[in-house]
């Protein structure tokens, strides 16, 4: 696929490397702290904090709000948001870091929330597509999606919107090609890429099809 040769920007490969690091960290039991965590003996005799398997208290900062719940450590950020906190703009589609429908911003960076544990996201600001609207006031990215009809069933759309927002926040002068590269980790089944390109050109203040 086209993202394999990408340099820079945000690609599916970049996403996967990120989530791979998370998985490795989890396996090593290096989740840093936990107020309600039990204590386990580490290899050198020191007490290393461990958690679970039962529910632990979790506080997440979602769209500027502090939200509290209790989840087992195995719960992904995606499932914590959707099933425990009723934040459903991020969608569960592949659940394996392939499609991008679950993309959220963690610390300003786009992350597949299906591939990050909820506990990993503590103390980090999380933003979902829902943050891109205040009352009737739409952010420029979802506004462009709506104006150019860059969505059909819309189930992938919040993921695309968040991924595109990430590119433009990192580089407000991003070119159309750079924005497209930033969307390589997202898949749309209805086939709205053509209309998405109209939205991208508009957001990049570029002319399409003169």
């Amino acid at each position: 696929m086209s993202d394999s040769k990408d340099k820079g920007g945000l690609s599916r490969r970049g996403f996967l490397q990120g989530s791979g690091a998370v998985a490795a960290a989890t396996a090593l039991g290096t989740i840093p702290t936990g107020a309600s965590a039990g204590q386990q003996a580490g290899g050198n005799g020191q007490q290393v904090p461990g958690m679970g398997p039962n529910g632990v208290k979790l506080s997440l900062n979602v769209n500027g709000r502090s939200m509290n719940t209790t989840v087992e450590p195995r719960v992904t950020l995606l499932d914590a948001l959707r099933n425990y906190l009723d934040v459903t703009g991020c969608k569960r589609v592949c659940d394996r870091g392939s499609c991008g429908a679950c993309t959220v911003l963690v610390d300003g960076k786009p992350v597949y929330s299906c591939s990050m544990l909820a506990l990993e996201a503590r103390d980090k600001p999380i933003r979902t597509a829902e943050s891109l609207v205040a009352g009737a006031k739409l952010d420029a990215v979802p506004e462009a999606f709506a104006r150019f009809d860059a969505q059909q069933c819309g189930f992938c759309t919040p993921g695309f919107v968040v991924a595109m927002k990430a590119v433009l926040e990192a580089n407000p002068k991003a070119t159309q090609a750079e924005v497209e590269r930033g969307l390589c980790g997202n898949i749309c089944r209805c086939g709205t890429y053509e209309q998405m390109r109209d939205a991208i050109y508009s957001l990049c203040n570029q002319q399409r099809r003169t």
């Binding site: 959707r82 009723d86 969608k91 597509a129 609207v133 709506a146 969505q151 819309g154 919040p158």
Partner: peptide
């Protein structure tokens, strides 16, 4: 004509069956 639910879909406010809690 822009679809009526475009903004709701693009900002994750649209509730699909999968989103019903």
């Amino acid at each position: 004509v822009q679809r009526l639910d475009g903004p709701d879909k693009a900002t994750g406010r649209a509730r699909y069956s999968f989103d019903i809690n």
